[in-house]
Design a binder for these strands. Structure first.
Length: 397
RNA sequence: GGGCAGGUGGCGGAGUGGUCAAUCGCAGCAGACUGUAAAUCUGCCGGGCCUUGCCCUACGAAGGUUCAAAUCCUUCCCUGCCCA
């Protein structure tokens, strides 16, 4: 029997949704053989978020056990766009958008993965070279029924929404990645199961070898929906400590334990005892603060985490001002409040600024200003506050 | 290739000659309440301005009819369903 702290058990279970085929993979890992595994991400956005970080962290866990890990950049698959998680066709990205998106990825992912020990590959290198003949060979391994059986397609069909023929090619492409790499295991979110299984099929037929599949639990965003840039509910790896901490504090309470499991390294036993404590009446807020510290520490270090927490307490619990407020010098002697808000960059248009003022979202030196005709004299410096978290000191140049 | 139904704001979805910058729901923003939680309530939610009002842009695209078009006509493009 294995113990709780056995690294192989932990790697096979923590944050894991499903492993196919679990006992085979387990015995492979226990055989001490070093396996080859990969994670593919399509550069559809410039920012990686905590949801992307989950399989990345799992990849890192394998790396720490000495396995050969591959980070695959889907710079070709991104051209088609995976629709696994979408209810409609995606607008295709252009090559330059893809390149642009990828630019800072490595920097972001380096906070998790050690790239000096990982291999980075680009699926454009092999997918672009495939001809019609090869593609047909891949396509005849699957049936139309298998494709349209998927929920999202059924859903779109019943709603009369279009399904592009090319969308069926996505699993083929992702599957071919496995073949090209000849891996033992692929990691991904549980929305990737179908695509990863396609790779398993192709690997078996074309390379005559087994590829296992490990799917990770899905991380929900700050609002409880799936974490996705289109919902604007992501917590990004590149967010500042303050942003990360604040966003974590504003997430729904019932996500706390998931976040601990999926995004931190705290032992599962500790997470379980927190669950019990909260059930017994512990204030979820305190656990959330702990969560904030843990996560900010991972991406920015312990000092930044402590600072972020102190600032948070200061601004939102004591309703104090942040300790550092940006200052902006303005040329005129006085400003209409609406102009001031726009000049400060807190509203994109004057109409928007006016609405903020009328809605009571704008304060000068702590005083709420609701008359959009108010004029602010800059003889002395003023503190402008818009909403709960935008502060700016304005002074005359 | 033929028949039918459609294309409206980030999304869903009303409207079918003037009262339409376009009902409503979701998402978003601000406020109240709070634990910057959730839930709830209130206001806002194309842009600009000299803001009880005015101007610009916008209901797939281009033309046309009309004092007036998201709404009518023509052509084109796109989508779904059915038939072949």
């Amino acid at each position: 029997m294995t113990t709780k702290h056995d690294p192989i058990t932990s790697i096979l279970t923590r944050g894991v949704s499903e492993v196919i085929v679990k006992n085979e993979l387990e015995s492979l890992l226990r055989s001490k053989k070093k396996i080859k595994l990969y994670l593919g991400l399509d550069p559809t956005s410039t920012l990686l978020h905590l949801g992307n970080a989950i399989p990345l962290r799992k990849l890192k866990a394998f790396q720490d056990l000495g396995h050969h890990v591959i980070f695959l950049v889907g710079n070709f698959t991104a051209l088609i766009g995976d629709t696994s998680d979408k209810d409609s066709m995606r607008k295709p990205l252009t090559q330059s958008e893809i390149d642009e998106n990828f630019k800072t990825w490595k920097e972001q992912a380096s906070k998790i993965l050690d790239f000096s020990k990982a291999e980075t590959v680009y699926n454009k290198d092999w997918l672009e070279k495939l001809g019609f003949k090869e593609i047909l060979e891949l396509a005849n391994k699957f049936t139309v029924q298998q494709m349209i059986e998927r929920d999202m397609y059924q859903d779109r069909m019943s709603k009369g929404k279009p399904i592009g023929l090319h969308e069926f090619l996505y699993p083929l492409m992702q599957g071919y990645d496995s073949v090209a790499l000849g891996v033992d295991l692929e990691l991904g979110g549980n929305d990737q199961l179908f695509n990863m299984l396609a790779g398993r099929t192709l690997q078996k037929v074309l390379n005559n070898r087994e590829k296992h599949v490990m799917t990770m639990k899905l991380l929900l965003g700050t609002d409880g929906r799936k974490m996705s840039k289109s919902y604007n509910n992501t917590i990004n790896i590149a967010d500042t400590p303050g942003e990360q901490y604040g966003k974590l504090m504003s997430t729904t309470d019932d996500l706390i334990l998931d976040y601990f499991e999926l995004c931190t390294d705290l032992p599962m036993e500790e997470i379980k005892s927190m669950a019990a404590e909260m059930k017994a009446g512990g204030n979820p807020r305190d656990y959330k603060m702990r969560l904030g510290r843990e996560i900010v520490t991972i991406y920015h270090g312990a000092d930044s985490a402590a600072h972020a927490e102190a600032e948070f307490k200061k601004i939102f619990q004591k309703k104090d001002l942040p300790s550092e407020i940006a200052e902006k010098e303005l040329p005129e002697a006085s400003y209409n409040i609406v102009e001031l808000v726009v000049t400060a960059g807190f509203a994109p248009s004057k109409n928007e600024a006016r609405r903020l003022v009328e809605g009571g979202g704008v304060k000068i030196d702590g005083e709420k200003i609701t008359d959009y005709k108010s004029v602010i004299d800059l003889k002395k410096p003023h503190l402008l506050q818009v909403g709960k978290r935008n502060f700016l000191k304005v002074v005359r140049r």
